[in-house]
Nucleic acid binder design. Structure first.
Lengths: 251, 251
DNA sequence: TTCGATTGTATAGAACAATAGACAAATACG
DNA sequence: CGTATTTGTCTATTGTTCTATACAATCGAA
């Protein structure tokens, strides 16, 4: 939605195709920050008028930039700027999703896809220090940065200690803020196991990936100030867009 | 005839026309000195094979460079590198044609177009200090630099003092060397009058100009060591390609 | 669910780019 | 004066680029 509205210059019969000239100008404007500063490109019709060419000519330019990995077009939504480098997600004792990416992405968002209260699977019960089959709250969340899915997480919480956690999360949009409703002002990451695998069908859809895409899987346990486990989480990061930065310094 | 023989790279379907890519490469190779170092480009067939394109495609590239003024094509002769700046012809007491241009042009050549012995016109007789109607040798010469006509001169010499001067000039190709055959080891320019006018029909043909072209006219008198006039010359320089640099320092 | 905004696809024609072959015109050279 | 070399012109064919119009598909929001 940003960018100057003045007409851009393209030279005809110069031996350089219009779509190539326009692609070069768009790429440069993006890196200069004068276009797509909010992560989204103006609609094709607006751009084609700005460059004084047919919409299809402009689409050729966008197609070239999509091929380069500079842009990403989504039918019905718009054309978005691809982050040039992977987001670096810090893994440390004080890992928080949004704060860790604050400097790397302009727009961060987490949304609740689904939630349920159900018996704890064995590994979740072990992680949370509960009896197998104890009631837990399960949250399915999706995190995005700059209009682009970054991770898909499944989290479990002790349903007895955190009744109505899903609602608290839905209202605050934040794990940290939801915990505060239960008197937890601070918490720490006790452990993180990192692995990688192909994305399953559900994650492919949620993360808008194509078949064969890879996800980084981080299985983490968060504990409160007393060291009692309060969250067991499995987060699938899009491997193409994220790298995990593990801090090994003393804490 | 110079330039490396290895095949040059051009990219197809890149949005940049082949002729444009080739024109850019040729322009760069010329300024780098790896092409046209002798002022002449290889034939179109050779270049088209070197770039791996059809001769017509290569001709489009050459046409663009001709339009830019970088090249000049002559039917039956070849394609030549245009000097980007005017040749600066020094006018001083020791003005010599070839030495003055030594550093500015790779290839300098003077040729004798015609010669005759005839009665001196009035202004020539005055210049040479002869009686009007005295016999003089008239030389019509053409000078070129880098395969390109630069000037067209008509010179007169005292036929009594310099018998057979035309033959001497034809054999040596140099005014200076021809004078040496008559015992003149050194000579000086006494005066130069500079004017400008449109080229006449004969000069248009000899200098390969198109109608309306302008010539700089330098009327000069050279004298020997004793100050006796030995040459009266009218030189027409192609105004597009030459500027005269008049030295005003004390001699 | 309907509507507007946006990207995706299809088709057709005009303009440009590249290839191919043949021959003309000018020049250089023996 | 021929002959070879080199640039200039012409016609034809094919592929790419650009324009134009129309409609489909997807998404978001009223």
């Amino acid at each position: 939605m940003s960018g100057q509205g003045q007409k851009q210059a393209v030279t005809r019969k110069s031996g350089v195709a219009l779509w190539r000239q326009i692609a070069d100008q768009i790429r440069q404007a993006i890196s200069a920050g004068t276009l797509g500063g909010d992560g989204k490109l103006p609609p094709e019709m607006v751009l084609s008028e700005r460059f004084g060419v047919n919409r299809h000519t402009l689409r050729s330019a966008i197609a070239a930039l999509v091929q380069e990995g500079v842009l990403r077009a989504e039918q019905g939504r718009g054309t978005f700027v691809e982050s040039r480098q992977k987001l670096s997600f810090p893994i440390s004792a004080r890992t928080r999703f949004s704060t860790g990416l604050r400097s790397q992405a302009r727009d961060r968002r987490s949304s609740l896809l689904a939630h349920a209260v159900e018996p704890a699977p064995r590994r979740v019960a072990e992680g949370l220090g509960l009896a197998e089959g104890a009631a837990v709250v399960r949250l399915e969340t999706l995190s995005e940065a700059d209009e682009r899915p970054v991770s898909r997480a499944t989290s479990w919480f002790d349903a007895e200690r955190f009744p109505g956690y899903a609602e608290a999360y839905a209202e605050t949009g934040s794990i940290t803020l939801a915990f505060q409703r239960y008197g937890i002002e601070d918490y720490f990451r006790k452990s993180t196991l990192v692995s990688a695998r192909h994305a399953d069908a559900a994650d492919l859809a949620d993360l808008k990936l194509s078949a064969g895409a890879i996800v980084l899987v981080a299985v983490a346990v968060n504990v409160d100030a007393e060291g009692v486990p309060i969250q067991y989480a499995e987060t699938r990061f899009v491997a193409d867009r994220v790298e995990l930065s593990v801090s090994t310094e003393l804490q």
